[in-house]
Each structure stands twice: as structure tokens, then as C-alpha cells.
Computed example of a mutant assay.
Amino acid sequence: MDGFELTQPRFKGYVLPNAPLETLAEGFRWTEGPVWFGDRDELLFSDLPNNRVMRWAEYAGLSVYREASDFENGHARDRQGRLLSCSHRGRRIHRTELDGRIVGLVEGYQGRRLNSPNDVVCKSDGTIWFSDPPYGIQTDYEGGKQHSELPAAVYRFDPRDGSLRVVADDFQGPNGLCFSPDERRLYIVETGLQFDAEPLQHVRVFDVAEDGRLSGGDVFCTIAPGNADGIRCDEHGNLWSSAGDGVHCIDPGGELIGKILVPSTVANLAFGGRNDSRLFLCASHTLYAIYVNVRGAPLL
């Protein structure tokens, strides 16, 4: 099948040979953080080094959603439909209210500033989970060089009472994260130390307790070529991961079952579009999309 690689025959049921990879927009510096707004029928994503957030809609095309975005990277929506964003330069998680106001949510931990929040997800109970590696403050390209005050970690923030706690601190560079459809698992990408010759890079999986505590943390899979960055789960619990050659689909047991091949490195992805069965791909300088025969994991 052109454009696909079937590692296991069952992957054939997830892809559509008559639905090719489509180029939606080009000319960015590095695309990241896609999030779908079904009620507005539009995708938001970061053009990170250009310090802006872009908007793409099927019938309106491309436009700028936010200029001078404080070098936002990852995005998600909370349970009220508001945009959650990871700011590299601001070193915080902030929220865009429905009236457009931007409200800071998390800026530090135990009296010290966060590094550069990278990716964020919202659980069905309203808690906000995010990774905080130092990548955005190690160069001037994605936010600006600043001093790191905290070790890299993954956090859980509860906006109901303002509590913040570390849920995983044994990472060198925590990156993308997503919950399984039943929220009993949390997948977290380890992309290692940015300038290491051989950085530690794999995807780990944790069991999630009722109170939000994590256990386990075994290596779930390793992505090659390239490495995992952004990840998403589909309705069947398969993990779809960014990779150097496109998108890899890994079943809940950790087995690679197939790939969508893309001309450039994919940094992040999101399900959206009609019935949540369109994959939007942030790939280097380009925004791609492809229809697949599976839907993104539904909200609980």
C-alpha cells in the first residue's frame, strides 16, 4: 500500500488506500501542539520558533490565531472547552478563557519557576497533567535561554483547589503524554537530554490510581527511526506516535502494527475532523492531514 507500511496485517483495517496524505499548509519553522476544536471546526497549532499560534479551517484556510504567543508549544482543551497552553518563554501553563482573556494557571513549584512546559492533557476529572523538560530555555530558538530552577518532571494540577504535585520525576526529558481511553494508563514520552550524543528515548507507560498517583513506568515501546514526541490514543487503545519517518501505530501490548509514511519528521499529531477520524500531523515546516479508519479516543 503506497504511503503505508503494514507491520501486522490488522493495520490494514485502520488505513484507507483512497485517502492520501494531504498537505494543508507550508512555510513554518517548526510546527507543534495541534488541538482540534470540533465546535468551531478548526485546528490550532504552534509555529513555535516564529512565536505564534496558527488556525486552520477546512473552508477558511490558514490564519494567525495568536501573534507573540509567548512561545507556546503543546495545547489541549479543558472540560469547559477552553484552550490550555504550554508557554516556553513564560515558563507556565495558561488558559485562554472563552472571552479571549489569558489566565496563568501554573508558574512554579515549591517557590521555584517551572522550566518550559512542553505538552499538556486534561483528564475527565478536570485535572491538568503536563510535562516540564528544559528544552525551551536551553536555546534562543524556541523561547530564550534561561536558568533552570527545577529538575525535569511531570506534574498534575487540580484547578479546583489549586494543588500541584509531581507525579513522575525519573525522566531526563519528559515530552508528549496521553491517557488510554479508560484513563487507567498514562503514556509519557522520554526524549532525553537535548544535546546528548545518545539521548535516552522511548515511551513509558504508567498505571493511574483513583487519586491520580502513578505506578509502574516500564518502557512501553521505542520509536525508530527518529524518536517519539507527540502521542495520541485511538478508540481501541492503540497509541499513535510521531516518528522520524511519519506516524507509528502501536497496539496496547506495545507491538508496532503499522506506519503512515510522511516526507518529513513528524513532531506531533491530533485526531479531529469529521467523526474524529482525521489525523492532523505537525511535521517540521508543514501541516499534513490524512483520514484513517479509526477514531480518536473519546472523552469520558
Rank of each mutant, 00 (worst) to 15 (best):
S163L: 11
S163W: 05
L164F: 08
L164E: 06
L164A: 11
L164C: 07
L164K: 05
L164N: 04
L164G: 06
L164R: 05
R165S: 13
V166W: 03
V167H: 07
A168Q: 08
A168C: 12
A168L: 00
A168D: 04
A168V: 13
D169R: 11
D169M: 09
D169S: 15
D169C: 07
D169I: 09
D169E: 15
D170Y: 09
D170I: 04
D170G: 07
D170A: 14
D170Q: 14
D170K: 12
D170C: 13
D170F: 08
F171K: 02
F171M: 15
F171Q: 05
F171P: 03
F171E: 00
Q172F: 01
Q172K: 13
Q172A: 15
Q172M: 10
Q172E: 15
G173V: 05
G173H: 03
G173M: 02
G173D: 00
G173R: 04
P174K: 04
P174R: 01
P174Y: 07
P174H: 10
P174A: 10
P174D: 12
N175L: 15
N175A: 15
N175Q: 13
N175I: 12
N175F: 14
G176M: 04
G176I: 05
L177K: 02
C178Q: 03
C178P: 01
C178I: 01
C178T: 15
F179T: 05
F179L: 15
F179C: 06
F179M: 14
F179K: 10
F179P: 00
F179D: 03
S180I: 11
S180V: 01
S180C: 13
S180R: 05
S180A: 15
P181I: 11
P181K: 06
P181E: 13
P181T: 03
P181M: 14
D182S: 12
D182I: 09
E183K: 06
E183V: 12
E183C: 11
R184E: 14
R184Q: 15
R184I: 02
R185S: 06
R185A: 13
R185K: 14
R185Q: 14
R185N: 10
R185G: 03
L186G: 01
L186E: 00
Y187N: 01
Y187P: 01
Y187K: 03
I188K: 00
I188A: 02
V189N: 01
V189W: 02
V189F: 01
V189C: 08
E190W: 00
E190L: 05
E190M: 11
E190V: 01
T191F: 04
T191P: 01
T191M: 10
T191Q: 10
G192W: 00
L193A: 15
L193I: 13
L193D: 04
L193E: 12
L193N: 12
Q194H: 08
Q194C: 10
Q194T: 10
F195K: 08
F195T: 06
F195H: 13
F195N: 13
F195R: 11
F195G: 01
D196E: 15
D196N: 10
D196V: 12
D196A: 15
D196I: 03
D196Y: 12
D196P: 01
A197G: 08
A197F: 07
A197Q: 09
E198H: 12
E198Q: 14
P199S: 09
P199H: 06
L200T: 08
L200M: 04
L200G: 03
L200A: 10
